[in-house]
Structure formats: structure tokens, C-alpha cells
Simulated assay, not measured.
Amino acid sequence: MNEEIRVIIIDDHPIMAEATKHIIEKIEGLKVVSIATNGVQGMDMINLYGPNLVMLDYQLPDCSGISVAKWIKETHPAMKIVMITGFDVLDLVAPLTEIGLHGIISKEKEAPVIRRMVECILDNQLVLPHETIAKLVSDPEKDPDQLTEEEKKIMILASSGETSSQIADKLFVSKRSVDNYMSVIYRKLAVRSKAEAIAVFQNNRKKGTGI
């Protein structure tokens, strides 16, 4: 990594925050510039330091991690966000991927696993725990049809954490067109959410099925 990547951690548990800092700073080129203990302080630190990556706890004392994530995407759309949580990750996938998060990491994961997940996120991949993807694609009826080249482009961008508006800007189409494409993709992949579509798409790409 040529440039230093600035990271802010927002977590009200001091021990967990320090543990996350230790894990993050083991990755070459990353530096934790601030640790915030609540959502309001976190937003202030984000405005002050302009980090590249935010490690955000799902449950904060003054607000939810989701509300902070929405604020970040509205005010700093290029910023990467990783939600760290001790809750059942599967229940969070759909709402968080709709916001445009780049990863969801369970606090129960070991340090080397978290480091690998963060490295993938920095490489513009949407990262979910393996067991979560397995649950999302476990339905045997999810046997996807071939996607068109345009649909593949949209799914590749969605898999990197881009929102519909960001995808529209990059493909020079309207947001409504992207939403229409996504509806077709949902039907082809037999899914009902962006999170499921991404999970099925990534799973089948790894298998080399050609979608």
C-alpha cells in the first residue's frame, strides 16, 4: 500500500476497541487515527480526520450503528464501513448491504480472520462471514440463470459495496434503471434482497458457473 489508510473505530467497549486497533494496525499501511465511544463522537471524528475506513460497532450507547452508517453514506459516500457486532450476523445482512456497507464482521472471529476480511474489503470486495453466505445460498432452488453482461457489471459493483446511485453514476444510467436491473437479477437468482443476490452471485463466481 503506497498511502497510509486512516481508520476510525467506533465502539463503546474500551477493551474491544483496543483489541480491534491492535488487529487493524497489524495490517501494513493502516493506522488508527481515533477511537470514539459513541455515535455522536464518532461522527465528529469522521468529519475531523476524514478516514478511509470506519470500524463501526452495531450497538452504541447513544444511537444505533445503522443510523451512523446511513449518515456516513450520505455525507462521505466513498468511505468504507465495516460493521462489527456480537449479534447474529445473518439478521443484519439485508439492511446493512442495502445501506452500502462493505463488510460485516462478527466479534467472535479470531484476529487473523478479521485481518483477512479487512484486507479483502480494502480490495473493494463486500465481505460477509462464510457461514452467513452458506445460509443465504443453501436453498437448492437458487440455481441462477445466465446474467447478461450489463447485469454482471451491476452485480460486480454491488458486490464491492456500491449503492444503486453510485452504480448508476459509474455506468452512466439512471438510478431507476439500476433498480429495474436489480429486480430482474433478483428474479433470475431467485432471491428477495440485495444481500442474497450478492451472496449467490459471489458463491457461483467462485464455483465458476459463469454467471
Rank of each mutant, 00 (worst) to 15 (best):
E4A: 13
P14D: 07
P14I: 05
I15E: 00
A17M: 02
A17Q: 00
A17S: 02
A19E: 05
I27G: 00
I27R: 08
K31E: 07
N38G: 03
I46P: 06
I46R: 13
Y49M: 07
N52Y: 01
M55E: 01
D57Y: 04
L60D: 00
P61D: 06
D62C: 14
C63K: 15
G65P: 05
K70Y: 03
P77A: 07
T85Y: 08
L90N: 08
V93S: 02
A94L: 02
L96Y: 06
H102T: 11
I104L: 13
A111M: 14
P112L: 09
R115I: 12
V118F: 07
D123M: 11
D123W: 02
P129E: 13
S138L: 14
P140C: 14
E141S: 15
D143R: 11
E149W: 11
K153S: 08
M155Q: 06
I156K: 14
A158D: 00
S160Q: 08
G161I: 13
G161W: 10
T163C: 11
S164W: 01
L171Q: 00
V173W: 02
S174D: 01
N180R: 11
M182Q: 07
M182G: 04
R187G: 09
K188P: 00
A190F: 05
R192L: 13
A197P: 02
A199E: 03
R205G: 01
G208W: 09
T209H: 13
G210E: 01
